[in-house]
Simulated scan of single mutants.
Amino acid sequence: MNETICLIGFDEPEISKLKTRISGRVLAHPSLPGFRVENGLLFIDNESGGWQSRVDRVIFHGIFEDDAELFVALALWGGPCFPDPLGMLDCRDKHACLVRALSQTRFPGFGRGYVPAGGVVNVSTEQVAKWGNWHCGENKARIQGEWCAEFSSTLEPFYPGEAVRVVLLGEDVLQIRLAGDDWLKSIHDSTADLMDMDSELAEDTRQLALYFNLPVIANDYIIGDDGAKYLLEVNHIPNVTRFPVIWERYAELVTDWCCA
């Protein structure tokens, strides 16, 4: 049967590559399209706009300010969606996702805190405040002493050590050494690179992926100067284009899923 598959959130180079691998009709939208669920069927805008087409499968990869509505619609539709829309809903609010993840990880750390917007804290040791729902090192600050939160923020101790990302792609797990010129480390720094896999972090990432029911996930950890490990955050829609080996595995994963 010829299916209609919708790609949402991919940039044009990745859209072109996936279209060559996926058989059947493919609709692609780099940003959120119009959609509706009606009588158990999912309809999404055609690429040229205007009429909507019935869609049989969805592959979602992106983070948008108002994407939670789409996840609700996809969950109510109940059709094949990669990743699982319930898992994406559980992770979309970064603070709520962290709380869920800390309840499951082997490496929750210690001394976490929270301050609502407009609240004031006075911390005696250096902390990291995080707010908002964006990743990539945004919306974070190192604080000590009195600090007023402009936005509702989580607090965690500043852990000296090496920042790493563990990426799960189906059955494969890879580890990246994050890098940067200051305390904010990222996969986008030119010196970030793949590194040997830590077996404990691999297993922890597998367990969190299972908990959230997500086939692709990336966890950021600190490996402390004393060897202790700390989960920092869960990325439910991680970057898959920075390293060719990760993109190839991801493309293979979603292509195989389309044929399942």
Rank of each mutant, 00 (worst) to 15 (best):
G227M: 10
Y211S: 00
P157D: 12
G145T: 05
K185I: 02
H188K: 07
T154E: 06
E150R: 14
V166H: 08
L194R: 11
L168D: 00
S190P: 04
G224Y: 04
P157W: 07
L184K: 15
S190W: 06
Q144K: 15
A218F: 01
G224H: 09
L210K: 01
Y221T: 06
A149G: 02
D198Q: 13
A202M: 09
C148T: 14
G180K: 06
A192M: 09
D181Y: 09
H188G: 00
L210A: 04
S186H: 08
D182H: 12
E150K: 14
S190G: 11
I222D: 08
G161S: 12
G227Y: 13
M197Q: 14
G170N: 02
F158W: 08
L155P: 07
A163D: 14
V166N: 06
L178D: 04
F212N: 01
D198P: 13
I176Q: 07
E156Q: 15
G227Q: 12
L194M: 13
P160F: 05
N219K: 03
G180C: 08
F151P: 00
S190T: 11
D189Y: 07
E200Q: 13
S153C: 12
P215S: 02
P160V: 07
T154L: 13
P160Y: 09
N219T: 08
E162S: 15
D193L: 14
G161R: 06
D193W: 11
F212T: 00
V166I: 10
P215W: 04
D220Y: 03
A218H: 01
E162L: 15
E200S: 11
P215E: 02
F158Q: 08
H188N: 04
W147E: 04
N219R: 02
W183I: 08
A209H: 01
L169D: 02
A202H: 05
G227T: 11
L155A: 05
H188S: 03
L184N: 10
T205C: 02
L168P: 00
R177G: 14
D193V: 13
I143E: 02
G180P: 06
R142G: 12
L208Q: 04
A209L: 03
A149K: 04
F158Y: 15
Q175D: 12
M195S: 15
L184P: 02
L194K: 11
M195Q: 15
I176D: 05
A192E: 05
F151R: 12
R165Y: 00
I143N: 05
D196Q: 14
S152M: 02
P157Q: 10
D182Y: 10
T154G: 08
D193E: 15
E156C: 12
Q175N: 12
S199D: 06
Q175F: 11
L168M: 02
D198E: 13
P160R: 12
